[in-house]
Design a protein around this nucleic acid. Structure first.
Lengths: 238, 238
DNA sequence: CGCAGTCTTGAATCTCCTCAAAAGGCGTGG
DNA sequence: CCACGCCTTTTGAGGAGATTCAAGACTGCG
């Protein structure tokens, strides 16, 4: 298991303790959660609102048949808390070693309101993405989102290329995007062959042609399976 | 165009005025918007927060190519306002003659916060619906949602059947559900043949077998095209 | 080194979409 | 009142894309 060293040099004194089989680290300012662990385990102060400082989490629902249903992937800057998990019986799972900072009490209500708006917008965008888009559009869109969230990790490379770590498996990606594992893999490799992205290790992605991906993500690409009907009636009457 | 008579007998004195080519009706307590008209036209006091008293509206984005992208359908009880439309450049369109009541100033912030949470939950549910479900599941789920929202119109019929008015065209439904017009029509008629629903007029739907629809909506029905991959890794690791 | 999990790739099937045409409903005007 | 046109809805046939099933390659770990 991870040794949970304190990252950075100016961290306040922290305490490390064990809950179940996992070790948590906590201080007055931030908390570190190892990969694969819930960010809000029972007994850790569930009511807290936390801001992701580094790492990645996924917001998911536990389906009845044991499968996960990933609602969103959140990186640094996003605010999570009971206001999210209470909404639909969701969980917040750390996809990698994630550091979270408590949101100060005086500004907590405003942060929660802002985060709720942000999540609503993301959920609407995601619904639109899933509404009628082909594999290539879904994969392109999610790559761009993940790049925006995690692209700062290694800094920009030559020729405006960005490399980031994919914290999800192909199966997770498929779950999030409403596709199958094989379709995601095919999509990623098609992009790779087309020179839009590059990857040697399946979890380290380099964006090589952002404009090309954006064109695909917005449905401007070659006319693949468009599920959009012709424009609706001008005045949706009865 | 409609004559905009005041519905009900205990309405407060109202004023009627014309904006563009449409006639609006307004009072200190409520406002009536005809079908096909925006609920927040410029010049009508955009900043107001309104609660739907009766009728139906759709929340949609105007796509670049002129098509609509319907995000949600909202019936009585839902709260709409600038907090929604500002989020993603959306519009709120009345699908039928709709009466809206202003939310009183003292309780407005709380209502907005509550409505934002409600809309987030709806958006997440919708994304999950669109994430991996077949035509029958999408149509069944949306019928149940519309029944919950508009089923009180005619009251329950015999044998627990509920009849409601479908304020949307098949094209609108297809847009909302990420399908095509023909697929929606096929789905509805398949349900009709199966005895799950009934309709003579295409806009007046009777729910005849709610449990059957619920089984379909939750994916418990006959194993149609399930896009769910096998359960993800237990600890989503790297 | 072997194992378990992940990722890639191939072939066949199936669902849904596209294109197309006909039927039904509604308002307008004769 | 009926005929006409427009829009909506229904239904059919064919094809494209994604899924399913299945096998093999790769990675990381014990």
């Amino acid at each position: 298991m991870l040794d949970s060293p304190v990252i950075g040099t100016k961290m306040p004194p922290s305490i490390t303790f064990t809950l179940g089989e996992h070790r948590y680290e906590r201080s007055t300012e931030s908390r570190v959660v190892p990969a694969g662990m819930l960010a809000f385990p029972a007994g850790l102060g569930n009511a807290e609102t936390l801001r992701i400082v580094e790492g990645a989490v996924c917001l998911y629902q536990q389906a009845g048949d044991g499968g996960r249903r990933i609602l969103d992937i959140l990186g640094p800057g996003h605010v999570v808390g009971a206001f999210l998990t209470d909404l639909g019986g969701c969980n917040v799972l750390a996809l990698t070693r994630t550091r979270l900072a408590a949101v100060a009490a005086p500004e907590e209500p405003a942060r929660i309101a802002e985060a709720t708006r942000t999540m609503l917008k993301r959920a609407q965008s995601h619904a639109l993405l899933l509404r009628g888009n082909a594999v290539s559009e879904r994969v392109a869109s999610c790559l761009l989102d993940l790049e925006r969230q995690f692209g700062g990790e290694f800094g920009p490379g030559p020729d405006d290329e960005t490399t980031f770590t994919l914290h999800l498996t192909r199966a997770d990606l498929a779950d999030w995007l409403g596709l199958t594992l094989t379709s995601v893999s095919r999509g990623l490799n098609a992009f790779k062959r087309a020179g839009l992205i590059a990857f040697d290790h399946p979890k380290v992605i380099t964006i090589r042609d952002r404009e090309g991906l954006e064109a695909l993500a917005s449905g401007q690409g070659e006319p693949t399976r468009r599920r959009l009907p012709q424009a609706a009636s001008p005045a949706g009457g009865f």
